[in-house]
Simulated assay, not measured.
Amino acid sequence: MAWTIRTEKPEDAAGIAKVLTDAFSRKDEAELVAAIRNSDAYDPALSLVCVEDGDIVGYVLFSPVVIRTADCDETPALALAPVAVLRAFQKRGIGTALIEEGIHRSHQKGAKIIVVLGEPGYYRRFRFESAKEHEIEPPWDVPEGYFMVLGLETNVLRDVHGVVHYPEPFTQIVDVTE
């Protein structure tokens, strides 16, 4: 393994945008990350890059969200979004390593719950499970099973339910179901 994972630095912005644009074949996610970076939702400790030979080849970001009940009770959580690897570097374990390191750092910082919108077959390997089974709903219409949750401590999801509320920059995504 010739690559390393580290915390994002200010000078990484262009490399991160390149990774996101390459991986998603559009600029939406790069624009989302730029907007998050300039908001209160940004925690540089949870913005990770994978570097090989001095170039950024992968990226993952965890942002604060809240799970809000109809009675306005709120439970803090994090959202894993986006995660991306340059197409030429995919299938090498970089995305897996970024997510695992991000989950570990999130837990070290006190996070207890992480949500993700993504392919169930991929995210189950990290112990994510259907959020719907825990009565946790996304703020958008998404395909059945694609909105998932991970409890980082035993029974942390027991009394948690409601709709996940994302930071303002997430409203800039054109289509969350792609």
Rank of each mutant, 00 (worst) to 15 (best):
residue 16 I to Y: 00
residue 18 K to D: 05
residue 18 K to L: 13
residue 19 V to F: 00
residue 19 V to Q: 03
residue 20 L to M: 10
residue 23 A to I: 06
residue 23 A to H: 06
residue 24 F to L: 13
residue 24 F to P: 05
residue 24 F to T: 01
residue 25 S to R: 14
residue 25 S to V: 03
residue 25 S to Y: 11
residue 27 K to A: 14
residue 28 D to R: 04
residue 29 E to R: 06
residue 30 A to Y: 03
residue 31 E to P: 05
residue 32 L to K: 10
residue 33 V to W: 01
residue 34 A to P: 00
residue 34 A to K: 06
residue 35 A to L: 06
residue 35 A to T: 10
residue 36 I to A: 01
residue 36 I to V: 10
residue 38 N to R: 13
residue 40 D to T: 08
residue 41 A to K: 08
residue 42 Y to F: 10
residue 42 Y to A: 02
residue 44 P to G: 14
residue 45 A to P: 06
residue 45 A to N: 13
residue 46 L to A: 13
residue 47 S to L: 09
residue 47 S to V: 00
residue 47 S to D: 05
residue 48 L to N: 00
residue 48 L to W: 12
residue 48 L to V: 09
residue 49 V to L: 10
residue 49 V to K: 00
residue 50 C to H: 01
residue 51 V to F: 07
residue 51 V to Y: 04
residue 51 V to Q: 03
residue 52 E to D: 13
residue 52 E to A: 10
residue 53 D to N: 15
residue 55 D to R: 14
residue 56 I to M: 06
residue 58 G to L: 08
residue 59 Y to Q: 02
residue 60 V to K: 02
residue 60 V to Q: 04
residue 60 V to P: 09
residue 60 V to L: 07
residue 63 S to R: 02
residue 64 P to N: 11
residue 64 P to E: 12
residue 65 V to D: 00
residue 65 V to A: 08
residue 65 V to T: 04
residue 65 V to G: 01
residue 66 V to T: 15
residue 67 I to Y: 02
residue 67 I to S: 01
residue 68 R to Q: 11
residue 68 R to K: 12
residue 69 T to D: 14
residue 72 C to V: 15
residue 73 D to R: 15
residue 74 E to K: 07
residue 74 E to C: 14
residue 76 P to Y: 07
residue 77 A to S: 07
residue 79 A to K: 03
residue 80 L to I: 04
residue 80 L to C: 07
residue 80 L to W: 09
residue 81 A to K: 02
residue 82 P to T: 10
residue 82 P to S: 11
residue 83 V to W: 05
residue 84 A to R: 03
residue 84 A to C: 07
residue 85 V to A: 06
residue 87 R to G: 11
residue 87 R to C: 12
residue 88 A to Y: 14
residue 88 A to H: 12
residue 88 A to C: 11
residue 89 F to D: 05
residue 90 Q to N: 08
residue 90 Q to A: 13
residue 91 K to S: 13
residue 91 K to W: 08
residue 91 K to N: 14
residue 91 K to I: 06
residue 93 G to E: 05
residue 95 G to E: 03
residue 95 G to N: 04
residue 95 G to H: 05
residue 95 G to C: 06
residue 96 T to R: 11
residue 97 A to R: 11
residue 97 A to G: 13
residue 98 L to F: 14
residue 98 L to E: 02
residue 98 L to A: 07
residue 101 E to K: 15
residue 102 G to N: 04
residue 103 I to N: 05
residue 106 S to T: 10
residue 106 S to D: 03
residue 107 H to C: 11
residue 107 H to A: 15
residue 107 H to N: 09
residue 109 K to S: 11
residue 109 K to A: 15
residue 109 K to R: 10
residue 111 A to G: 09
residue 111 A to D: 04
residue 113 I to M: 04
residue 114 I to F: 05
residue 114 I to D: 00
residue 115 V to L: 05
residue 116 V to C: 08
residue 116 V to F: 06
